[in-house]
Simulated assay, not measured.
Amino acid sequence: MKYTVKKCITLILSLFLASVLTFTAFQIIPGDSALNALGMDATEEQLKAYREHFGLNDSLPTRYINWLKGALKGDFGYSSQYQMQIKVSTLIKDRLTVTLWLAGLSFLLIVVVSIPLGILSARKKDSILDSFITLVTQVFMSVPSFFLAMILTLVFGILLKWFTPGNYTPLDENFGNFLRFMIFPAIAIAIPKIAMMVKFLRSALLKEMQLDYVRTAKSKGMTNIRILFQHVLKNALIPVITFLAMLLADILAGTILVEQVFNLPGLGRLLVASIANRDYAVVQAIILYIVSVVIIINFLVDLIYQWIDPRLRSN
């Protein structure tokens, strides 16, 4: 209980600090928010009214408190890119579904493919199969996701015509077509991560298999497979979970280039467009989302540690 309370306090403080840094960073950027929103043709009266309406004349602490109150309710103000007609929360909500589906499919592929391959590679250490898996993972680890996205688009989109490049189908229109299109960007994101995960899991398992308790279990007549699945795999879970959490945070925060290649209307494309249009309210909200995702995932990993290893509860 003490461990959980301590981690919850750390989570709250981390999120608070992240919000302060995110807000402050965009307040010191040169430029006039009112001018960016209304355009160069705005009159002085319009600019004054805008600043008054959105509290831009208030002190920095007051603006932060008002912004934080809105953020806690999911209200980040209005986007200047659309003449103040669309809320930032609406823009993000429309695109968050795409990004979450893409991240979820990618993570599912990573877990389903990498864990069996990592176990197989460790079991067949120094065999031809192990050498082949190691070679393939080394190659794919060095290939960036956006390049794989281009290759997948060329091979499966243009040559084999399994999908139409750029022809994204929304989830609420046709789930089958949506899933068929989304699987390819998910594969592009997952392949390098699968390669890293296989190598990491293999190393973790081989390290555990060299410990004394494994030799003791063998001396008692236990088979290698039983030792692997009953003891070694469980003990190797903590570093593996850490790595998986890092991969998940990276996926949720870094799908920008792949979304661009596949023309997906996710948060990545929205972030690029908002930066290009100096739509700071949207950029601010997305950055806060990215930072919060990383912090919350690390918090959840710490709780999983406690569940797997009860010794942490005494810390």
Rank of each mutant, 00 (worst) to 15 (best):
G104Q: 01
S127F: 11
W307V: 14
T4S: 12
A217K: 08
R51Q: 12
D130Q: 10
G118A: 07
D250N: 15
I65C: 08
S19H: 13
Y78T: 11
S33M: 14
P310R: 01
F23D: 13
L312P: 01
L15K: 00
F147C: 13
G266R: 03
K199Y: 02
L179E: 03
L237G: 01
P265D: 10
F175L: 15
D32H: 13
Q85C: 03
K193C: 09
R202G: 03
L252T: 06
I290K: 13
D41A: 13
A122Q: 13
L68K: 02
L11A: 02
N263F: 13
K199I: 04
F140W: 01
G118Y: 00
P239M: 06
V214A: 06
K207S: 15
L267R: 09
A186W: 04
D302I: 03
A149S: 14
I241K: 02
Y82I: 00
Y289Q: 11
M182S: 06
S314C: 02
L154K: 07
V155F: 05
I308W: 00
N36I: 14
A188M: 08
G254R: 08
V214Y: 08
I29W: 07
D212G: 10
A37R: 02
A236D: 10
K69A: 10
D309V: 01
Y64G: 06
F200V: 01
S314M: 09
Y64Q: 09
G39Y: 06
I86P: 07
V88G: 10
P192D: 05
L47N: 04
L271H: 04
Y280P: 05
